[in-house]
Design a protein around this nucleic acid. Structure first.
Lengths: 207, 207
DNA sequence: GTCTATAAATTGATAGAC
DNA sequence: GTCTATCAATTTATAGAC
C-alpha cells in the first residue's frame, strides 16, 4: 500500500497551475489507475479532488482530454529519461545493469500511469501509435544506439529500435508488470533478476 | 485483417447450445476485443449477433457474466494445452523450440481473448487471481516441471512456476503482444525469434 | 476560480407477449 | 427460443451565478 510518489506527481506539485486543476489531475490519475478509465466517473473524480464536477470541464474539454493530458506526460517522462548517459559506463555489462535498474525503477515509480496506458494500449490505436513514436520513431533512441555501438566494441551490431522493443523492453516491462501487479518480491532472492540481466545481455551483446 | 479462427470459436461452433446464445458469445468476443468491454454496449452485441437485446439476458444474468464465461474458456484452453507432451523431445533445445512455437501460435490464435483479458488484468483483481491460479497454483504445471527435470539432465534445477512466469511467460507473451498489437512481422527475418529462443533457453537450462 | 443546477443521451436490465 | 416495450439509473457535459 505504501505508494511511491511518482516523478509525475512531484512535478505536478511544483507546476504553476490553479489548485483545482492540480487536484483534478491527481485525483484522475489515482482513480483511473485503480478502477480503469471507463469505470471512473467525472463525479468520482470531482469528489476525490474535492471540487465540483463543473470545474473539471473548465480545465478539460472532455473526460478523454483529461486522459490525454495524463498520458502525454508519461511519454515525456519516458523519453526524457530513456538510455540517458549511455556512454558513461566502463563495460557493456555495467551499462545493462544500470539500464535495467533504472527502467525497473521507472516502472515502479510511474506504475499508476503504466497501468492506465497499459489498459488503453489493447484497444486504443492512438495509444499504440504514440508508443511506437516514443520507442521506434524516436531520434534520441537511434542516437543512443549508435553511441552504444561506437563505445562498446562487443555491442551487438544488429541492435535497432525494433529489436530493442521486442528483445529488451518486452522482457523488462513484462517483468516489472508481473512483479508489481502480482506483488511478487522484486529483489533477487530467487535469481529472477539475474536471469533478466542475462536475457538483456543476450540482446545488447548479440551472439 | 485475415483473422485466424480461434480454437475457442471452433469449439463454440460445435458445442450444443441455442443458436442465439452462440451468436451472442461470438459477437461479444469480437466486440470486446475490438472496442474493450466497457465501450461495448449490450445493444451493439445484440445488433452484431442479430438477436434482440432481451435475449442476451435470457442466457446471461449480466454483461459481466458474459465476460466471465468468455474468459473462463480461455483459462481452460490455456491450461489444457500448456506444456503438453513435455517429455517427448530428444533435447531441451528441441523442447524449448516446440514450446515457443506452440505458445506463440496459441497467442496468435486466441488473440481476441488475450486482448480482452489483458485489459482486465490491469484493474480487475479477480482476473489476476484467476491467472495466478492457472499459472502458479496449477498442479499440472508442477508435474510438468518435475518431468522436465527428470527427463533432461541439463535442465535448470531451480525451475519453478514463479520463474516460469517471470522468465518465460513474460518474455514470450510480451513478444506475442508486441508482434500482434503492432503488426510486426513475426518470423525470424530480423533474428528476434532466435533471440527469444536464446532468452528462454537461459531459463530452462539455468546457468 | 469555483460552484449549483440541470439537461440530453445512453445504458444495463426486466416483464411479458408470441 | 426469441422479440417488443419499457424503465430506472447513471453519465457526460453545459450555462450561468457567485
Amino acid at each position: 500500500m505504501a505508494e511511491v510518489r511518482s516523478e509525475y506527481e512531484k512535478a505536478l506539485m511544483e507546476a504553476t497551475m490553479p489548485a483545482g486543476k492540480r487536484k483534478v489531475l491527481l485525483a484522475a490519475l489515482q482513480l483511473f489507475a485503480k478502477q480503469g478509465f471507463d469505470r471512473t466517473t467525472t463525479a468520482e473524480i470531482a469528489k476525490e479532488a474535492g471540487v465540483s464536477e463543473g470545474l473539471i470541464y473548465k480545465y478539460f474539454k472532455s473526460k478523454d482530454s483529461l486522459l490525454e493530458e495524463l498520458s502525454k506526460s508519461f511519454y515525456d517522462q519516458f523519453r526524457n529519461t530513456f538510455l540517458e548517459g549511455v556512454g558513461e559506463y566502463a563495460t557493456l555489462d555495467e551499462l545493462v545493469t544500470a539500464f535495467m535498474r533504472d527502467r525497473l525503477n521507472f516502472a515502479r515509480e510511474n506504475f499508476a500511469l503504466i497501468r492506465i496506458i497499459g489498459q488503453e494500449v489493447f484497444m486504443n490505436p492512438s495509444f499504440r501509435t504514440a508508443i511506437a513514436n516514443v520507442v521506434v520513431n524516436n531520434g534520441h533512441i537511434n542516437k543512443y544506439i549508435a553511441e552504444i555501438k561506437a563505445k562498446y566494441p562487443d555491442a551487438n551490431p544488429d541492435l535497432n529500435p525494433e529489436l530493442l522493443l521486442r528483445g529488451v523492453l518486452g522482457p523488462l516491462f513484462s517483468y516489472a508488470l508481473i512483479t508489481n501487479l502480482f506483488h511478487l518480491k522484486s529483489d533477487d532472492e530467487d535469481g529472477s533478476l539475474t536471469n533478466l540481466h542475462r536475457q538483456l545481455m543476450l540482446v545488447f551483446k548479440g551472439k
